[in-house]
Design a protein around this nucleic acid. Sequence first.
DNA 1: GCAAAAGTGTTGAGGCTACACCCATGG
DNA 2: CCATGGGTGTAGCCTCAACACTTTTGC
Lengths: 233, 233
Amino acid sequence: MRGNLFAVAVDLVVLTVRRAELCVLLVERGAPPYAGSPALPGGFVRPDEDLVDTAARELAELTGATGRAVTGHLEQLGSYAAPDRDPRGRVLSVGYVAILPDLPDLPQPPAGSDAPAGAWRPVGPLLESPAGLAFDHDRILADGVERARAKLEYSTLAASFCPPEFTVTDLRRVYEAVWRTTIDPRNFSRKVTSADGFLEPTAALVTGGRGRPAQLFRRGPATALHPPMLRER
Amino acid sequence: MRGNLFAVAVDLVVLTVRRAELCVLLVERGAPPYAGSPALPGGFVRPDEDLVDTAARELAELTGATGRAVTGHLEQLGSYAAPDRDPRGRVLSVGYVAILPDLPDLPQPPAGSDAPAGAWRPVGPLLESPAGLAFDHDRILADGVERARAKLEYSTLAASFCPPEFTVTDLRRVYEAVWRTTIDPRNFSRKVTSADGFLEPTAALVTGGRGRPAQLFRRGPATALHPPMLRER
DNA sequence: GCAAAAGTGTTGAGGCTACACCCATGG
DNA sequence: CCATGGGTGTAGCCTCAACACTTTTGC
C-alpha cells in the first residue's frame, strides 16, 4: 500500500422540478475553504460506510427523511480527484445524482441538525455562467444535469420527479422542464400510457382544475423505456 | 478534514474483439492478497496525477505505447469502495473502461517492465460463472462490459474497436461480438454509411479475400449516433 | 462457371408528428 | 354557453426488417 492517501467525500446533485424549472439543492459553506459560497451538499465517507450509504445518509439529513420513505432515485455519477481541487489536501469526491419530487417543506433544515439549510436554485443560470459554486462543483453539477437529461430519453426516471400519484400532464411538465422544450400533450399522453410498465392507472381522477379531470397514475415496474422518448435535435 | 483516509487505485477494463469474441485484458496477481488469481490491471494514483492520467499511464504500460498513439477510447466507469473489498485496509478503486483495436503484439510485456504480462480472455465465461477474479473485479468487469454494450447503441464507440482503417464488415463484427447476435449485413451497411459523421470513405479498397473487394473507411467526427443502432429485445 | 462477399432496390409494418375532433369540467 | 384542459382518430412521413437482386472478386 502506498503512502499517498485521500480523504473521500460524497457530493450530491439533488434535482427536482419546481414551478416548471429544473432546480438543484445548494447549501452555503460555513467554513473555509470557500466559506460563504454556494456548494453542493456533501460530506466525508465514514469508516464503515459504502459510498451509496454515505449518499443516502446525506440525502436523509437534507430532506429530514425520518421514516418518510422518499420515493426518489439515487445513482452514482462519477469521481473527481484533480490534485488541486481542494486546498486542504488530496480529496476525492464521488458525485451522486438524486431525483426527488417537489416536496414543499424541504428547504427547512431539520430541527436540531447541524446541517445548513438547503435552498432550491434553478439550474439554468448556474449552467450558463458557472462562476459561483465552491470547488469543482460547477462541473459536477453540469455532469449531473446532463446525466438526468440523457436518462429521461431511455428510462422511466422522469417518474422519480413526481409524487407517488401523478397525472400525464405532471409527467410531461417534467420532460419539458428538464429538456427546456415543449411536447405535444396528445402524442405524449398516448406514448407514455402505451409504454409497457411505465404507468399504472389508479381508480382516481383529479378534479378541481379547469377542464376535464385527468386520470391519476402510479409508476409501473419498468425502468427502461422502449421505444425511447426522442429529444429534438 | 477527517482522519479516515483511503488509498485510491484505478482499475482498467480493457476490451477488444479477437476472433469474433469480446475479450478483456487480465493480469495475474503476483503478491497477496489474491496472489496467483487473475485480476483487472490497475495501480495506485500518484501524488500529482488526476484519475484519468493514472488510467492512461496504466494503459500505456500495458500496451507498451511508447510513441505509438493507440487509437482507442478511455472513459470512467465508476467507483467501488465497499469497506471490506480489500483486506489490507480501506481502498477505493475507480474503474475505467478502455477500448482498443485488436493489436496482435499486445500480450508481450514491454521489455524491462515490472508489469506482469497481460492475457486476453473472452468475457463470456467470465461473466457466466464469476468466481475467478480478485477483489470485486468480477463486478467491475460486468459493469464495464454492460457500459460498452449500451454505448454501442447510441454512440460511434464501435469504431474504437477497429484499426484506423476498416471495412463495414469489420465494424459489423464488432457489434456482433459485443452483443452476441447477428446483424443483416446489407441493412447494417446502409445504416452506418448513411449515418452522418460516423464513417469517412477512403480511396482504398480491400482485396485478397474472397468475393468483391470492400470499401475502406476511417472514423468520422461524430460521437453520437442518430438514430441509434437497435439491439433486439 | 461457381461460390462468396459487397452493395442496391423494394416492400410492408410500425412509430412518429401534426392536427382535426370529441369529452368533461368550472365559471 | 364557452373557455380550458384531457384524451382519441387519422393521414403522411420516416425508419426498419426482410429479402430479391446485381456487382466483383478468388478458385
